[in-house]
Nucleic acid binder design. Structure first.
Ligand code: NAD
Ligand code: NAD
Lengths: 204, 204
DNA sequence: CGGGTTTTGTGAAACTTTTCTCATTATAGT
DNA sequence: ACTATAATGAGAAAAGTTTCACAAAACCCG
């Protein structure tokens, strides 16, 4: 019960917010599963892992579910995040800053080796790399997003870990190497598309 | 042996290209696994599922591995893809067009409801939605990327399926509902960050 | 108030994926 | 040519994840 359970809980949280906005106050595992694209049993198992219980026949109360989920994900604390590489993807993420779920994740600064990017107004202030230490300490940042070209990604990763970063979301199409105590999440958008193309070809 | 096996094969392919560029001609499961972030046994299992074999003591020949992987992923065929929603993420993807792995995935057109986006020069031509049918048929497109706000995503999805799209990569933070024969890959970038924050909090 | 219905919670079963183990064999060195 | 070595391939075991199945509880309605 590791990654997938956590990602599903975050999805449930999103769905519950939606149901709440629609005026619902209670929900059944069946409806939540339907919205989140999983089976009702999966929903109940996911909840039971975290000791979340509902009421037989009456399902779950949305409001209290959200309170528990917010506790699990520390939605009361602010988590400052930095972004290295203010190119296309980096800029897209920077502009999304005020949408990050629940507003408990904040992109506080971007970094780029290119001085031209350091002036660009992109939702967050952009700095040269020699300001890394200062800002990581100043904003108590422990999570970073890497959006530099693959050839520089490992070097940037090492640098970030050296400066105290503990969690990394990497968009460069390589698998970053890092000590086991560092949380690394590698996302490869090209692979996500290629995989769809593969499955479509299989169907034929 | 489903999604993860395929994603790993695509990653191996990327790593092998890199090793090839570095001048290597043979590789061991140990080295490939190391580069791709998995165990050597996993590499061999992944290969054996697709009937790929190497040589005892001498490992795998990179060139022939790449040929087989290219066959598995139909790298010889061109796969045209469209993009709906030319906002921040859509534009980032459009500008990445000529980098998509192996150059067998092409973004041929973007679509947006906003006429202002239809003029913008962003790597690919952008059209209004009423041109969907025409371009899907003209370019024989079966895969689409959805980068519209969540509130419009399901509607766009239905529209695309209606026009003949069979595979969808969705960036809107909802789980799209689609018939079982349609391949849907939902990516939620916010969740990817939130998950890292969660694991970091767990460590403390 | 009590029987019928609905939904939860969970242990067991089924299934999937990864790791372990080791016989086998290709290669390199002697 | 022979031997030692090093790596694969695959079956078995382990670990992880999802689905099944059903008892128990809460609610509704008569
Ligand atoms: N744009 C996409 O749609 C897309 C899709 C798949 C993968 N990716 C990957 O995401 C990453 C970013 O893509 P992009 O399109 O935004 O690239 P980009 O070229 O637009 O941006 C890269 C930025 O990183 C900066 N940079 C380079 N080296 C640096 C370093 N050592 N330190 C700090 N900054 C540095 C550059 O100045 C540039 O601003 C790449 O690894 C790319 O392969 C992007
Ligand atoms: N930008 C990010 O970093 C980021 C992060 C996480 C999730 N997302 C998600 O990705 C999606 C796109 O994000 P974005 O930042 O690019 O948004 P955006 O607002 O910049 O772009 C959305 C685009 O979609 C167009 N659009 C809206 N409704 C449409 C419709 N019915 N048909 C066609 N086009 C339509 C708009 O005109 C706009 O150009 C959103 O669902 C967002 O929640 C984005």
């Amino acid at each position: 019960m590791i990654k997938s359970n956590i990602k599903r809980l975050l999805q449930y949280r999103l769905c519950l917010t939606k149901f709440k906005e629609l005026g619902y106050s209670r929900i059944f595992s069946y409806n939540l599963g339907n919205e989140a694209g999983v089976s009702p049993e999966q929903v109940r198992k996911d909840f039971s892992i975290h000791g979340i219980t509902g009421n037989k026949k009456a399902g779950y109360e949305i409001e209290s579910l959200l309170i528990i989920l917010n506790q699990i994900f520390r939605m009361d604390e602010i988590h400052n995040v930095i972004l290295v590489g203010m190119g296309h993807i980096g800029t897209a993420l920077a502009n999304y800053n005020n949408h990050f779920i629940g507003q408990n994740v904040y992109l506080v600064a971007g970094f780029d080796m290119d001085p031209a990017k350091q002036n660009k107004k992109t939702g967050i202030p952009v700095f040269p790399l020699d300001k890394l230490s200062e800002l990581i300490e100043g904003f108590q940042v422990s999570t970073a997003i890497i959006t530099v070209p693959p050839v520089s990604a490992q070097e940037v990763c090492n640098n970030l870990i050296d400066k105290g970063i503990k969690g990394i979301l990497n968009f460069a199409p390589i698998v970053l190497k890092a000590p086991k105590n560092i949380i690394v999440n590698n996302i490869n958008l090209s692979t996500e598309i290629e995989a769809i193309v593969y499955y479509l070809n299989q169907q034929k």
